[in-house]
Simulated scan of single mutants.
Amino acid sequence: MLRDLFINLTILVTFHYLFMLVFKENFLKKEDTLLRQLCKGILSGLLGVLLMFFSIKAGPAIIDLRHIPLILTAFYGGIAQTIIAAVVVIIGRLLIEANIASFINIFSMMIIATASFLIAERHMNHVVKMLLSITIGNVIATSLFIMIVHETSFELHFTYWMFSYIAVLFNFYVIEHQTKAYQLLNLYKFQAHYDFLTGVLNKRKFDEVLNDAFSMKFKHPTHQMSLIYLDIDYFKSINDQYGHHEGDMVLKEIGKRLIKNTRSSDYIGRIGGEEFAVFLPNCTVEKTWQIAERLRRKIADQPVYLQNGMSIHITVSLGCAYYSGTSPDIKQLPIIADQELYKAKQSGRNQVSFSGRKRGQ
């Protein structure tokens, strides 16, 4: 008995660890795609069927930990996945052996699945909900086992309950631990590539994108490209007058407007305190000018609302550089964009400087 229950425990832990490797943090997504919900429900049900092959045989009944996958599915997967898993477990039990015990098992699996789902929806501590679900499952399983085979051995039932609690809590720990690990990994990946304040690429990642484009290792064929440098006008006075916290609100809003008013194929980065850059692959001279002007207008024409309830108008200066695909030194693009930005600021700010457009017309 101990050997079979230990095998059940080992299968459960191994399965859920592999499950997390495949689905990662999506394992916890109840509102998932239909195909993914179907896959997760079927796999959970097949786990229950697998556990039956390492069960304790006692007359017409078999005892194992097949109810634990149902409880975990109800807890993490929601109603659709729970129903799918329960159906698979029921079919598996009938295929193994169709007798009075297997038909009674159908009702027990339905009761356990329903009770576990209802408990999972309650606003309670997660561990308490898990323990309550496994207790109900154990009571049902033990009651049916006593009713069918008249087995009242305290040692048998105590061992079964002990393994059930260990199995559900250990699997709960594995799932929670792996989920948090993947969430942290995604957070670290985001922080490694994106500016935490504005949500655009950070300087290191933006430079990496440019270097890939310059070395022709860019993921899209790039025959022409443009680079826009953008600087918030008089940003220091905003910090001085309203405080750095409100200055951060301005930076966030600028980041949102840059994302909203550029193409999905463009790359936006924050490359300095109040300085941003936009890399436009496969962009003509005229399209570069249109995008730059649109950015200038969208920032200048709409006020930025601060947390103190005030609204202020922000303007930006922009410098553009264009590479046609025939220039001998593509790496001059940032230098030219910086020079054009300097011209825009020297010429009165709130404007776009783009000498390449004049040459291109």
Rank of each mutant, 00 (worst) to 15 (best):
F107E: 00
I96P: 01
V209W: 04
K189T: 06
V149Q: 02
V352R: 02
Q332F: 10
S226N: 10
H16Y: 08
F218S: 09
I84Q: 03
I271L: 10
A141K: 02
A61W: 05
T33V: 06
Y165M: 08
N105L: 11
S347V: 10
L280Y: 05
L210R: 02
V128M: 13
G255W: 08
I136A: 15
C39K: 09
D212Y: 15
F27V: 00
F196W: 05
M124V: 05
F6T: 04
G348C: 09
Y188L: 15
S327H: 13
V128T: 13
R204Y: 11
G348E: 13
T82C: 14
I166E: 04
Q191G: 01
T159S: 14
Q351E: 08
E121N: 14
I335R: 15
Q339R: 14
N239I: 04
K205L: 03
H220L: 12
F354M: 07
D266F: 14
T135N: 11
S324G: 08
Q37L: 07
S226L: 08
K219S: 15
Y188A: 11
C39A: 12
Q361E: 15
S215I: 15
K57M: 06
F196G: 05
E275I: 01
I56V: 11
I312F: 13
I314N: 01
G92A: 12
I68Q: 02
V127R: 06
Y323E: 02
I291M: 07
S55Y: 12
I100G: 09
Q81W: 05
S133F: 11
L18P: 00
H16R: 00
L169F: 02
G92E: 15
F19G: 01
I62E: 07
V127M: 14
L132G: 05
F107L: 14
I238M: 13
L132H: 03
S133L: 14
Q302P: 01
E121L: 13
G269Y: 10
Q332G: 06
L169W: 00
I166G: 04
M52S: 05
V87C: 11
L21K: 10
I56Y: 10
Q224F: 03
T142I: 15
L70T: 00
